[in-house]
């Protein structure tokens, strides 16, 4: 019975830790590690205060649906913005390297002022990391309290399972960090856009009482769906571009011929 609590808590918490760590990893790689770690530590501190003050009453006092809705809504806004920009770059509506040029200019300017921009705190990175860790951390706390309430010394055993899951996820995450940093910037932003949109859809859906089929595994199906649709959109925009150009040319020709007729 006691091992059952540890294992159940470990498995359930591992899923939540993976979700939180994925977004911390995203913030670390795409923004910078300082912002990601500050956001994550801020969320851990907030969680510590919430748990210390509310304790087991947490389950009844913090409406998880409201939290899921707010965070899901914000992730959808962030995710769609990133996905749109990445699709625009892939389809040629935006230059692939325009942001790199802007970044290089800003970096040079910051260096001239004696700042190191790569290590500077970025609000986006901090907020992304903070809200992901806060939501998933609260869910882990709920899991520990739920499983821990079912036996003697239950909270302690459930905490042990959750802590082991957290350590394992952090260890695996640290190992995959280096290979992820070699992925090209726009590819990474494209993947991040899909992931944020996926998590945003999933959490905001749960806040409305939607029971996704296959539970947390549905995240993979959602991500695959958004990936396929995004690739189709890139292809469609690329194919449309010559037609748009032709339409613009013929429109221009019509206008100039009308102008010639009006002003020979």
């Amino acid at each position: 019975m006691q091992w059952a609590i540890v294992i159940a808590s470990f498995l359930a918490s591992a899923v939540e830790f993976v979700e939180a760590f994925t977004l911390v990893l995203v913030a670390g790689i795409t923004v910078n590690w300082r912002s990601a770690i500050v956001g994550a530590l801020g969320a851990v501190a907030t969680l510590a205060v919430i748990i210390a003050t509310l304790g087991v009453a947490l389950v009844t006092l913090v409406p998880i649906e409201v939290l899921r809705f707010v965070i899901g809504f914000l992730l959808l806004l962030f995710g769609l913005k990133w996905l749109k920009n990445a699709i625009q770059r892939y389809s040629g509506l935006k230059l692939l390297h325009d942001e790199e040029a802007i970044y290089a200019a800003n970096l040079a300017e910051a260096r001239a002022r004696g700042e190191n921009r790569g290590r500077r705190l970025d609000p986006f990175g901090v907020v992304l990391s903070y809200k992901s860790v806060l939501l998933e951390g609260l869910e882990v706390a709920f899991i520990v309290i739920s499983f821990g309430g079912s036996g003697a010394n239950g909270i302690g055993l459930a905490t042990l399972g959750a802590a082991a899951a957290g350590l394992l996820v952090i260890l695996v995450g640290a190992l995959v960090r280096a290979p992820l940093q070699r992925i090209p910037e726009n590819t990474l932003k494209f993947i991040v856009g899909i992931m944020l949109t996926t998590f945003g859809t999933f959490w905001s859906g749960e806040s409305f009482g939607i029971n996704w089929p296959l539970s947390d595994l549905f995240l993979l199906i959602l991500a695959a769906l958004y990936l396929v649709v995004s690739l189709l959109l890139i292809t469609a925009i690329k194919q449309r571009k010559p037609r748009v150009a032709a339409a613009t040319t013929s429109f221009g020709a019509n206008v100039s011929s009308q102008e010639k007729e009006a002003h020979p």
Binding site: L80, L83, S204, W212, Y226, V229, L233
Partner: peptide, 12 residues
């Protein structure tokens, strides 16, 4: 669920 996914895709 379907309405939410369609809404997100329509927005994109």
């Amino acid at each position: 669920g379907i309405i939410l996914i369609v809404g997100v895709l329509a927005t994109l």
